[in-house]
Design a protein around this nucleic acid. Structure first.
Lengths: 222, 222, 222, 222
DNA sequence: TATGAATGAGTATTCATTCAT
DNA sequence: AATGAATGAATACTCATTCAT
């Protein structure tokens, strides 16, 4: 169709640019999550990504813009992880257990996410506010969770009237803290923080979630 | 002999090393918790405290040392808060509710604590490890908590075999996350984060703790 | 094709790393030799060289590294000066006289050398020890000197058994002190330190060297 | 005569002040000679001497003044050392040998002197010029030396017309350099710098001095 | 498009010097 | 007379950002 030379070089360049952007973004995510906003170094991101600093500036703008992109990327990765999660085909209790288990596993396997959230909250959330689409990101999860809670309430295994957002925050709380505060907990409370300890955490976390949802026994038996 | 001119008896206003040290420490706590380790500025601490930079270095060493002192101070403040807490004279359930309530209240009223913990964990806990006495600081609380759990188990209102450290981590988890992640939660989940929302959190948190401790009803009723 | 516009062939005026490095090194040599290690100012070196401070750090490392580079440069300049010196084609006595004359001349014309040596010895020689190739630098001179002494001994005009290193140190001693201590000598001994005084020094220095080498007359005449 | 109390307290105080001044001066001499002018620290001098900084300032003025006092002290110590030297009762050659030997020994045993001279010359001699009486200090030595040279010339063992200042500079040169440049010589020329090497230096130095003074053999024998 | 070279504006830290007691 | 407390003015070093090619 088109003459040979430009036909191949253009898309290739575009693809290269895309590849460079990704490399930068991933390097930035690691750097910001390891060192926080102020501690992160553009030099270091350039080195990690193998892309020169001027390119970083030309692709992303200044440090704050790059930080925003990295923060957004952290949320995007979480969303992608949640795709695998399918609560609709599980019994309500199993669905809740699956969600807890998934959340804890997710926090552990993507340490950037927690670090980025910590960093962003330390900064007062000024950047997350600017990422316009961020609230849409976790909506699919909430929709599923609302459906599960509803189903459980109808089946009589869960209390009714549980707000999915509040409940998700509860789940997130139990999963977040032991990981985000791993280092201080290890030192202050001498927690081993090994696989078995974490596994026990998971079991407890599921139990906490389920017990919280369970209908008030007094109302039935009394 | 001479009139009440407080020549030497009352504490000096200027040239008082102890007072200066405290001023620096408090300013450092605020600065580090607001900006993290890398983001904190010694200049700013000097200005906040009204003490010149050379004195800061003379009293505390370098930036890292000052950061360590501020982190330690955060833990000390928590310990001091816990002094008022007297779990021994409360019924087990009330004691747990009081502990949850206190923890959440402390996290809210002393935002430095959460910020310092976040910062320290972001940094991999290298500093907390150097503060030798930090693990002793929260031991009193754990002793009390163990006693309450024991009492509750004996009275039959709590399950037995609950580890006080693990359980304290659960309580801390539920109280920590909504506050530490306040800004991202507000944006991502549109949480109001106002007084009523927080109050509801407190009620839920107590409920979660109590339900987790409650003996398995199935085991009793058959 | 195109006219003589030296588009790419001739060395660039700006953005030339090599040129910048040399400018920094020369400025550092002057600054360190004028003010010593502790007294030298990086700011001043930046100004003298016309290169900004960050480049200095990027090219040379920290102040100590730059000082080491400057010290090494002082030795390199001496080696370059010695290249012109050709002792092999002179009669032994003339060769010694030439060496003395050259040494004194070099000390006078490159005041950095003496200042750098003074500074380094004041510092206990910690840096020179790190410059691995520094002892190789003056070896060519010693080889030549050994040959001259040998030749003179064979011809019977010099004593035999004179160690070239020790003898070079003697020469250096006589040439070094009047220059290195110029200012105190001028004040304490009211030496004029002008051209004629220096010329007389040169004549005396040659005489001292030659007389020291001359075979013991008593040994021959009995 | 005078009432008891002030009579004893005044002189004691004065003596204490004198003792403090000496302590400061000695500490300053060590500090300046170890670190040079810019490298010396008033804090360090205070610590070494056990006297507080404000006292140092009140006794000596500012850093430059203290440096000047230390430099002067170095010269004074040399003068004191020279008191023991009595050249008048020695045969001319022996006197010269004694002077050389003494000078070398002196430079070795009072390392401050050489360090202070180095420092002062590095600084361009601005301070020594202000010490008004410094040139008088070494005059006794020069008087003795002149007398010895004269005597030697009359006895026919020395050349006549040797300027005592120039000749003293020659002696100083040979003694100064191997000590002042000890560290670089050790590294660059692999000199052992031990007792035997130094002893050999002394023997050579005497020989150099004597040979330089010896009457021209050609003039006599020819 | 791509990057090595370059720098202005900070930032931690030090040091001579003075104040208040 | 004596000193612990205090600081203004540097000074070494860093880092986000831009220039020139």
């Amino acid at each position: 169709m088109s003459p040979a030379t430009p036909a191949k070089s253009r898309p290739l360049r575009k693809r290269d640019a895309e590849r460079s952007k990704r490399a930068i973004l991933e390097a930035a995510l690691v750097e910001f999550s390891e060192h926080g906003h102020a501690g992160a170094r553009i030099d270091s991101i350039a080195e990690r990504s193998g892309i020169s600093k001027p390119m970083i500036y030309s692709y992303f703008g200044d440090k704050d813009d790059l930080y925003a992109a990295a923060l957004r990327e952290a949320y995007v990765q979480i969303r992608e992880g949640e795709r695998d999660l399918d609560l609709d085909n599980l019994a309500p209790e199993d669905a809740i257990r699956a969600l807890v288990s998934f959340t804890l596993g997710h926090f552990r396997s993507k340490p950037w996410f927690i670090s980025m959230l910590n960093t962003e909250n330390l900064r007062g959330g000024t950047t997350v506010r600017k990422i316009s689409d961020v609230s849409a990101i976790q909506s699919r999860l909430l929709v599923q969770l609302r459906e599960v809670l509803q189903r459980g309430a109808e089946e009589g295994v869960f209390r009714s009237g549980i707000d999915p957002v509040d409940f998700y925050i509860t789940i997130a709380s139990i999963c977040y803290f032991p990981i985000s505060n791993m280092h201080t907990l290890r030192t202050v409370f001498k927690c081993p923080m090994d696989e078995t300890w974490m596994e026990q955490r998971r079991i407890d976390a599921e139990e906490i979630a389920i017990r919280f949802l369970r209908p008030d026994p007094g109302g039935r038996d009394g």
